[in-house]
Design a protein around this nucleic acid. Structure first.
Length: 565
RNA sequence: UGGGGUGUGGCCAAGCGGUAAGGCAUCGGCCUUUGGAGCCGAGAUUCGGAGGUUCGAAUCCUCCCGCCCCAGCCA
């Protein structure tokens, strides 16, 4: 509830599905699949596809398969299949017993290839990769037929079997579909179906020496699994005629419909596998799960919830137009989710000591504090209050600007859940930096109220100096310093636009005592600052917190507009 | 210059011939023991442009313009 408590929007895919159901197409069944290639970690863009495929299936009481498109052994690895399964599960989706691999179909794919050869729809070609490219023609000129195009069926059959048997070296022959070398669609100019590759496959080992291409494998895999709606991204639009050609020319069980939608783009970050890999390889980030990355693993570590990511995926919609979604929307989805469930706690990130001079020297009181104003069921906790406390450095200004409601000399503020304090004296070090404040408190204001109804403008969070626990806090900011490097006048490498301040590490932060027991998987709101979670780098002595997202900060806006003037 | 797509407020996105949903962001206001949250309100005389059809068009037709994708034995 909460984050996903709204009706799903309309989109063109839902329209197609609903029309299909009305028309009783596929007996009214909806069966989708999420088909990643296990050659990298999943990111938020994949999450969109996962939510779409699994979400649509659930919505129409259908099924969604998880299928690994593992037809290119050189790039793939079990490390990736494991991480992909973990990420899909974490996002909250269940493929039941429908876990498939394209490599499971290698034998059938081979049989189907034989069928194409026998029916004169495919032939073994001896042209080299370079020659094939030359023969393919260009965008504006038609291609030329391969000299092998009219190779007799029996001969292609024989050659193809010998390709499988390992009689030929890598790259010497390929199997090609026989379609139309003059087609305006390059994908129809006798596309390659099989290539010879002496490469060990992460599942089939060395059993195969020939591997089918994606364009040939995908439609057949879909058909074998009884997929009804095969959703993929826009760049495959040009491949659809071939998808249909394969299914039209083979005795497959059904003919799924390929539907293309625009992939997700998010500003201030990178989403391409190549770039993510480069950041990881060059140690520009701390790994695939670096909280600055838009990978699922990174978002998880950052403190994003599966619910917030699902809400985001629903919220961005599905359409065919290329778009760039604002990071602010993702952040909004997290805040909206966490606002309802995150326990409020007090943490002082940049401590400034405050001595309450009229508070009895060794006295300690227990003050009651609510855990979440949005959820009375979350209960309350006790907070120790004593003579020496810490407040946030930002909550004090010796020379306050207009509209600054926080502490300054002679001014009074409320300490959340505690007392009103007034600043009497500012203590500075030799360099003139403020290192301590001497304040007096109003004993009548216990709990944060006074009988005289006097109002204080500001409320600060605080922590008892003697009871606070020391922690490390990691603050994250945008990965890139510009929304979209591709839009910059000068064309530079994307790494030139990495935000140098994307990570700020704060040590010696002071948090309320209860937080020493914080566990991974728990979400907190550090009052007035943002949402935080425990990082796996935490040790028994020093907990490490990640800032998942800041709170909206209207003071920051006021301050900025004052500066702009 | 071949083919395939796509153009609705700053960012997304509904709309499918009957007179521009919604979300994010922004700006006001209310409220508040988080300058949080919440609540209320504001903003496209207009849907890439120009023509046309129609009583009526973002929706239909024509032409033009912009942007994206395609010449891997990658997916």
């Amino acid at each position: 509830m909460g984050a996903e408590d709204f009706t799903p929007g309309l989109n063109f895919i839902r329209n197609i599905i609903e029309n299909d159901i009305k028309a009783k197409k596929n007996d009214g069944r909806v069966h989708t699949r999420f088909p990643p290639e296990p050659n990298g970690y999943l990111h938020i863009g994949h999450a969109k596809s996962i939510c779409l495929n699994f979400g649509l299936a659930a919505e129409y009481k259908g099924l969604c398969n998880l299928r690994f498109d593992d037809t290119n052994p050189g790039k793939e690895d079990v490390e990736y299949v494991d991480s992909i399964m973990a990420d899909v599960r974490w996002l909250g989706f269940d493929w039941g017993d429908r876990l498939y691999y394209a490599s499971d179909y290698f034998e059938k794919l081979y049989e189907y290839a034989l069928h194409l050869i026998r029916t004169g729809k495919a032939y073994v070609c001896a042209l080299s990769a370079d020659q094939i490219r030359e023969y393919r023609g260009t965008l504006t000129e038609p291609g030329q037929d391969s000299p092998c195009r009219e190779r007799p069926v029996t001969e292609s059959l024989d050659f193809f079997q010998r390709m499988r048997a390992g009689e030929f070296p890598d790259g010497s022959y390929v199997l090609r579909a026989k379609i139309d070398m003059a087609s305006p669609n390059l994908n129809m100019r006798d596309p390659v179906l099989y290539r010879i590759r002496r490469e060990s496959h992460h599942r089939t080992g060395d059993r195969w020496l020939i591997y089918p291409m994606y364009d040939y494998t995908h439609p057949i895999s879909d058909a074998l699994e009884g997929i009804t709606h095969s959703l993929c991204t826009l760049e495959f639009e040009d491949h659809r005629p071939f998808y249909d050609w394969v299914l039209d020319n083979l005795p497959v069980p059904c003919h799924p419909q390929q539907i293309e939608f625009a992939r997700l783009n998010l500003n201030y970050t990178v989403m391409s596998k190549r770039k993510l890999l480069e950041l990881v390889d060059k140690a520009l980030v701390r790994g695939w799960d670096d909280p600055r990355l838009p990978t699922i693993a990174g978002l998880r570590r950052r403190g994003y919830t599966p619910e917030s990511i699902r809400a985001f995926a629903e919220s961005v919609g599905v359409a065919k137009r290329e778009s760039m979604v604002d990071m602010a929307l993702l952040e909004h989805c997290l805040r909206q989710d966490l606002n309802k469930r995150a326990r409020r706690v007090m943490a002082v990130l940049r401590p400034l000591k405050v001595v309450i001079s009229n508070y009895p020297e060794h006295q300690v009181e227990e003050l009651e504090a609510e855990n979440n104003p949005e959820d009375p069921g979350a209960g309350t906790r006790k907070l120790p209050f004593a003579r020496e406390i810490y407040i946030e450095q930002d909550d004090f200004r010796e020379d306050p600007p207009k509209k600054f409601f926080r502490l300054s000399p002679g001014k009074e503020i409320r300490l959340k859940h505690a007392y009103y304090i007034r600043c009497d004296e500012v203590v500075k070090d030799a360099k003139g930096r403020v290192i301590e404040l001497r304040c007096t408190y109003d004993p009548e204001s216990r709990g944060g109220w006074t009988k005289d109804g006097r109002k204080v403008l500001g409320t600060s969070h605080w922590v008892s100096a003697t009871h606070a626990v020391d922690v490390e806090v990691r603050l994250y900011d945008k990965l890139l310093s510009v929304p979209d490097p591709a839009n910059e006048k000068e064309e530079k490498d994307f790494k030139e636009y990495l935000n140098p301040n994307s990570l700020e590490i704060l040590k010696g932060c002071k948090v309320e005592p209860g937080l020493s027991e914080a566990k991974p998987g728990q979400y907190f709101q550090f009052l007035r600052q943002g949402y935080f979670c425990i990082d796996p780098d935490s040790t028994a002595s020093i907990p490490v917190f990640n800032r998942s997202v800041t709170l909206r900060d209207s003071w920051a806006k006021i301050e900025k507009s004052q500066q702009d003037k």
